[in-house]
Design a binder for these strands. Structure first.
Length: 803
DNA sequence: ACCATGGTAATTTTT
DNA sequence: TTACCATGGT
């Protein structure tokens, strides 16, 4: 098909040495990688099995695999290059050699997903009676993950934490027990997969050199998203040295028939929240002297208009290296902007436009991109109402469904009965008379004996220490697992094993007897699982492979390339492109998300996320936001995102019904403006908004936000480039949680406590006003106090002091 | 031991 | 608003 441009060609044909490819959005990155792999095999005579390509998602790996296979003549691949995610590569490494770590793990280890982890942590918190608001299972887990990825041990965690306090101490305690329980269960969580693999490669020379000798050409996709551990893994394989200091790769012969090729784009780094570090890409050329750097700056995807909008937005970031992404695709259509009254209105606008596009071109592919998964629902409903088929990525995946997880739990037990989480899950599902009392007693015994739950169970049954009824029940469960284990150890085909896990366990029978609509779907899902097993069996997968696959399968894997309409988060859309893109919910607090407001770095990450969203579009880009939105069952006013301000007005076309924020901003001499200008002076504001019920929240056109908006726009378009931190901190008047004050018409100007203000309370100390309902002294305030949580006050009664 | 009810927490983003 | 958990009744 297509020829490569000069830079792409160079990237493909540079066979040896360290190579850094800075590939802008839509610059043909995937093409370069696949061509490179094909070139290595076809032209450079590299045996395919010497090539290792690492990606972050199964989706990316799968796509790359398919494209490489398509490029090579059929039958050419006697052995395939290994194209794998970091995590599945680590599983491979560990399944082979984890026992050489001599850390108590066996190659039958189980993988714990987020849900399994949460169960472990909840169990620990229960055991230790930790039940306060400051530590939730989720927050503990993210703290644990944070520590693990920085090699901070449980012992040093409490001290490491910047301010050791009650909370960090509790987390340290949970962390310690968590690690012990995982080990007792012969289980590894997602972090462990990477960490243990790195430790193994570091410690065991034989293992390291095996991979170093084998994989002479290593590629890493989306390199800007690598974290320290992943980088270390790649380095250990590519360099073959466990030395902490920089390894000597400068010798004459080191890069002979050897390469390390990393591809990334700093502006698309959107995973810092889970430990990725773009300093890694910045330091790459220093870590590897002699690195050849190739920049791909021609975009083949988007129109001029779309690219310009993206470039303008990302230019507001301070932490970046300017680059010049250009396109020859042509100007294209303007970006279509729509302001809706509420979330429902936004969704129906989007559905309507999708319908129009599909009517004109039934083959066109549309994407609806949102910041958070919870936004999907409205769009699902509006699309369904119009009978438009859609594909949704994220939310609950197939493997997260209870019945699927239950079945998998049985299979996991068959291979590793010490898996406490799987055992806890299946022991009384279906109900077999093993209740809370029995389980509590078992847990007590387990604590005393310090062995796994399964072993405890064995002891209890043999000693008859639990009363005849419970003993019988436990023993029959034990026999089920033992029988399943024997089957798994025998030569039983995969599909038969999966069937056994649903039949021999009484699971299917239980569902069949239930006869509700829900149990029908559950049965159906189990059938699906068996079908999946049949297919996997045809591909030569073992039970082990099948279970690992289920553990590592992710939401984004649900993406179907040929779907006409796809709904997904912006994160999930990374690496994809669509002729028509809708970026929805472009509102303060949502996109950028309110959780990022405190930190400049996180805000810049949100902006990169916005950049990723815009650059997914090829021809048509829609950007929408609503004036109010329902969150947790409550209607809240919303204001347009700061990112909208960063797109030049002349690139936007307003499709809103009636006046909108954009119309107001764009035409300074219109009636709106005069009205708004009078509002700024404190006059009565006659609303230019569509007359709507008795809604009285803060909207884009209430005096406050108009002023904010004007200020921000002028601040930033002035001498420019200082980013959102420039000028007076305006976050004071902006709602932290998307909540806001009452419309200015009813509010005395600024006497009360503003959202975002810091206040002092005699008992609770310093806090931040999260929400303010009503006006002046009567306002009801919601204030967040560290360590005490949310407290509600009526302004005039509360002993609150402004600081 | 199982089921129903009510209270409360939850929504960033992912392997 | 929904979904999950904990509690209490049967």
């Amino acid at each position: 098909m297509d020829k490569l441009n000069a830079e792409q060609r160079e990237a493909v044909e540079t066979i040896n040495g360290p190579l850094l490819i800075l590939a802008g959005a839509g610059s043909g990155k995937t093409r370069v990688i696949t061509y490179r792999i094909a070139y290595l095999i076809e032209r450079a005579g590299v045996p395919p099995w010497q090539i290792l390509a690492m990606t972050f998602t199964n989706k990316a790996a799968g796509e790359m695999k398919a494209r490489v296979e398509a490029m090579l003549p059929p039958g050419r691949l006697t052995s395939a290059p290994l194209i794998s995610t970091f995590h599945s590569l680590c599983v491979r490494i560990l399944r082979r050699d984890i026992e050489r770590l001599q850390a108590g793990y066996t190659r039958n280890f189980t993988i714990y997903d987020t849900d399994d982890q949460a169960r472990v942590v909840r169990g620990i918190m229960k055991d230790f009676g930790i039940d306060d608001k400051t530590v939730t299972a989720r927050s503990a887990l993210s703290a644990i993950s944070w520590a693990k990825n920085r090699s901070i041990s449980p012992a040093s965690y409490a001290n490491q934490a910047e301010f050791a306090n009650d909370r960090t101490e509790k987390i340290a305690q949970i962390y310690k027990v968590y690690e012990a329980r995982l080990q007792q269960s012969n289980a590894l969580d997602f972090d462990d997969l990477l960490i243990k693999a790195v430790v193994l490669l570091r410690q065991v020379e034989a293992v390291r050199s095996y991979y170093h000798e084998r994989y002479r050409h290593v590629l890493i996709d989306e390199f800007q998203d690598t974290n320290g551990i992943q980088y270390e893994l790649a380095r250990l394989i590519a360099v073959g040295s466990a030395k902490v200091e920089r390894a000597n790769t400068e010798g004459e012969s080191f890069w002979q028939n050897r390469s390390l090729c990393v591809v990334g784009d700093l502006d698309q780094s959107i995973y810092a929240f889970r430990g990725s570090d773009y300093n890694i890409i910045l330091n790459f050329q220093h870590d590897f002297t002699g690195t050849k750097i190739i920049k791909l700056e021609q975009n083949y995807r988007s129109t001029q208009t779309i690219l310009e909008a993206a470039n303008k937005v990302i230019a507001k970031n301070t932490q970046r290296f300017p680059k010049n992404l250009f396109t020859e695709v042509g100007q294209g259509e303007k970006i279509r902007y729509y302001q809706s009254y509420d979330g429902e209105g936004e969704a129906s606008f989007v559905a309507e436009k999708i319908q129009e596009h599909l009517r004109r071109d039934p083959k066109i592919r549309c994407a609806v991109l949102y910041r958070t998964n919870s936004q999907s629902r409205l769009f699902e409903e509006s699309l369904r109402r119009r009978s438009i088929a859609y594909n949704i990525v994220g939310g609950f995946s197939f493997y997260e469904r209870a019945e699927v997880k239950d079945t998998i739990a049985y299979l996991k037990l068959a291979l590793n009965p010490n898996d406490d989480v799987a055992l806890g899950r299946s022991i009384n599902t279906p109900p077999r008379g093993i209740g809370k009392t029995t389980l509590d007693t078992l847990a007590r015994h387990q604590k005393d004996l310090d062995i796994s739950l399964w072993e405890t169970l064995g002891v209890a049954v043999e000693n008859r220490s639990l009363g005849p009824r419970a003993t019988t029940a436990l023993d029959s469960f034990r026999q089920i697992i033992l029988a399943l284990g024997e089957k798994a150890a025998g030569n039983e085909p995969l599909a038969e094993l999966v069937k056994a896990a649903t039949l021999d366990t009484g699971y299917v029978k239980w569902l069949q007897e239930d006869k509700t609509e829900e149990s029908e779907t559950r049965l159906f899902n189990i059938e699906e699982l068996v079908t999946a097993a049949v297919e996997a069996e045809e591909h030569g997968e073992t039970l082990r492979d099948f279970i690992d696959h289920a553990a590592l399968a992710s939401d984004t894997d649900q993406y179907k390339e040929d779907a006409r309409v796809t709904l997904m988060t912006v994160h999930a859309a990374k690496g994809l492109e669509f002729p028509v893109v809708f970026i929805v919910g472009v509102e303060e607090g949502l996109f950028p998300h309110s959780r990022t407001f405190q930190s400049e770095e996180e805000l810049e990450e949100e902006r990169r996320l916005c950049y990723v969203a815009i650059t997914r579009a090829q021809h048509y880009l829609y950007i929408t936001h609503a004036m109010k939105r329902r969150t947790w069952g409550e209607e809240l006013p919303a204001e347009p995102s700061r990112f909208l301000n960063e797109i030049p007005l002349e690139l936007l076309q307003d499709m809103s019904f009636g006046p909108s924020w954009l119309g107001f901003a764009a035409r300074p001499e219109t009636q709106h403006n005069r009205q708004a200008a009078s509002a700024l002076r404190g006059d009565q504001l006659s609303s230019p908004v569509k007359k709507t019920t008795n809604y009285s929240g803060k909207t884009y056109n209430s005096a406050d936000s108009v002023r904010d908006f004007f200020k921000r726009r002028t601040d930033e378009s002035g001498a420019g480039g200082q980013g959102p931190g420039a000028g007076p901190k305006d976050s004071g008047s902006r709602s932290l949680s998307g909540k806001a004050k009452t419309d200015s018409r009813h509010t005395a100007p600024d006497t009360g406590f503003r959202v975002g203000a810091r206040v002092k309370h005699a008992k609770y100390g310093t806090g931040v006003v999260l929400r303010s309902e009503g006006a002046g002294d009567d306002a009801k305030l919601t204030v967040s106090f560290p360590g005490y949580g949310l407290k509600k006050f009526v302004a005039k009664f509360a002993a609150l002091e402004k600081i």
